[in-house]
Design a protein around this nucleic acid. Structure first.
Lengths: 184, 184
DNA sequence: GGTAAAGTAGATAGATCGTTCTATCCATGA
DNA sequence: TCATGGATAGAACGATCTATCTACTTTACC
């Protein structure tokens, strides 16, 4: 299907050059499809943007949940696995920061659907973290989940402007420290 | 001067609605000045963007350094004061995240001067933190500075999508924990 | 082999973008 | 009083934007 090819191309361009900075002409040129092909699958650019966010979230969560499953099979901490998987994601696909926050920054004042989608995405991650923390017997799981979110989002934000490997290293170190103190 | 009024208006609009999302027409309309007044003070929109970043940095650093000075006068930890001041900044002026990273997201692929400016800004904060940590006798100051940066940037990134007061509360709590462990 | 769907190229519309230009207004100080 | 210079409104430029339309070609399937 051309649909996913357009989607993949749009995701890459939006991520590298911004949403407003990437015109529809650019997307179809790089995807090598006709303009009407794009508008057949997505009724507007806003619609395409939302579809791109969904695609990105799917890939991210697939990587995260696989790491969590694997940790469970090996009897390792799922929380640590999640943090580590986020770090891996950043090194592999996160060079330009968080696509969701990027979308929020450009569309917040103009497209409520984007705001809603981004808020839901971050809540999902925070909730997931909280569940894992609770399962592993941490006290104050909600507060600790927010603290770990700070580290994850901080790393995502800094990867574009600092040395990526160093950022991820310190992400793991700091998360370890926050997890140590309160765990049994 | 009209210059600063244009600058203040542009800063607000760029921050709330994005750089590409805010046209020059919008800036001059909200500032209540003529088009040529803007172009007399700023030779292009890109130029205006860079000036807005400088203005924003000035306000941010004034607030931060004042807190550091005050902490020193009272014999308190300057590191903690810096973290706390960043939290205060977020609650007051940080509703929509980091203006610099927002600019990076929109202009990175297109205007190298913006990238350079943003990288320098983040480096400045990290270096400042490292100096304060060293002064207060923390071991591994460079690594710890990055870890605290993760928390600061994470809080900045999350304020737009989560409850702001909770985010800042956990920022302080997590920073306390990272600072406790290694301090004498 | 024929039919229906999917994709193609390209023109087009209408809006908005950043930027420049002109012509007019109004304040200040000599 | 008059000149100078900054600010004004608004027209205009070419470029670019999203979106639509038409007409033609390819693909896939019964």
């Amino acid at each position: 299907m051309k649909r996913d090819h357009v989607l993949a191309t749009a995701e890459r361009l939006f991520y590298e050059e911004g949403f407003f900075g990437t015109g529809v002409d650019r997307v179809i040129a790089e995807a090598g499809v006709a303009r009407m092909t794009l508008y057949k699958h997505f009724k507007s650019k806003d619609n395409l943007v939302l579809a791109v966010l969904d695609r990105r979230a799917d890939a991210y969560w697939a990587q995260l949940e696989q790491a969590v499953s694997q940790a469970r099979e090996n009897g390792h901490s799922a929380c640590r696995a999640l943090v580590a998987a986020h770090g891996d994601w950043l090194l592999g696909e996160g060079r330009h920061g968080c696509l969701f926050l990027k979308a929020l920054g450009e569309y917040a004042a103009q497209e409520p659907a984007v705001t809603q989608r981004v808020v839901a995405e971050k809540k999902r991650l925070c909730d997931r973290m909280e569940v894992l923390l609770t399962e592993e017997g941490h006290a104050h799981a909600p507060a600790l989940a927010v603290q770990l979110m700070l580290l994850l989002e901080g790393a995502t934000a800094l990867v574009p402007v600092m040395e990526a490997k160093g950022v991820v290293t310190q992400l793991r170190a700091a998360a370890s420290q926050l997890l140590e103190v309160r765990s049994g």
